[in-house]
């Protein structure tokens, strides 16, 4: 059974309020938001954000996430060293949480975005259903990769004992934050409907 799509019906869906306007409308007739049948320059923008995010992940993993000064001695920790710290101190579960949130999730998101882009770009419509499931997943887990940034923020605020010990944010914190934001922007720019559009009728 073939289902009628918005393009075939000559309609445009408002992504804000889910109202179906006629194709020739520029703004939603219900809520007034600007509407487009498909997100404008969706693939171009998604490609750009994804590649930029990948580039920011390099300094994010190589630079220290935070610098702990204990009795005058500086000690930098990259994301991976932070994970190892937890595992060594017997906090296996927290080590795994940080490892998943800070290393696996960002890489998985970028890999997934490349997959979605290829499906949409090359019109591999039989992968569209898997693609849309993947899209929903990365939309949902995206924000959790910022967990480490919040942890660093709390550490900075808590560990302020003048000469005894203090914590500063390292260069990776900024790079990592930017990388996570870029993957979120990429997800937002991607229009999953493009994966289905080339389906033969």
């Amino acid at each position: 059974m073939h289902l009628l799509t918005d393009i075939e019906a000559g309609k445009t869906l408002c992504l804000e309020c889910e109202w179906l306007s006629d194709e020739d409308e520029r703004t939603c007739t219900q809520c007034g938001a600007r509407i487009h049948q498909r997100k404008p320059f969706s693939l171009l923008r998604t490609w750009s954000y994804t590649i930029a995010a990948l580039l920011f992940l390099i300094p994010a993993n190589l630079l220290p996430m935070m610098v702990i000064t204990k009795l005058g001695i500086d000690e930098g920790n990259t994301i991976l060293e932070g994970v190892i710290y937890f595992v060594r101190h017997g906090e296996m579960s927290i080590g795994i949480i940080i490892f998943i949130a800070s290393i696996i999730v960002p890489l998985f998101k970028i890999a997934a975005l490349f997959f979605l882009l290829l499906v949409a770009q090359l019109g591999i419509t039989d992968q569209a259903k898997n693609g849309v499931r993947l899209f929903r997943l990365i939309e949902r887990i995206g924000k959790w990769s910022l967990l480490d940034i919040f942890v660093v923020a709390i550490m900075i605020a808590m560990v302020q004992f003048q000469n005894l010990a203090s914590v500063k944010a390292g260069g990776a914190a900024f790079a990592f934050g930017v990388a996570v934001f870029l993957t979120m922007m990429a997800t937002e720019a991607f229009d999953p409907r493009l994966m289905f559009d080339k389906e033969k009728t």
């Binding site: 937890f86 101190h89 906090e91 927290i94 949480i97 940080i98 939309e139 924000k143 959790w144 910022l146 967990l147 919040f150 942890v151 923020a153 709390i154 550490m155 808590m158 560990v159 010990a165 979120m184 937002e188």
Partner: peptide, 22 residues
């Protein structure tokens, strides 16, 4: 999609474990 209060909340117990040795 930009509200992340829940991530902030979870980061509190996580940093507690990190701070525990101090």
């Amino acid at each position: 999609r930009w509200g992340m209060a829940e991530v902030y909340l979870i980061s509190i117990p996580v940093s507690m474990i990190k701070l525990d040795t101090m």
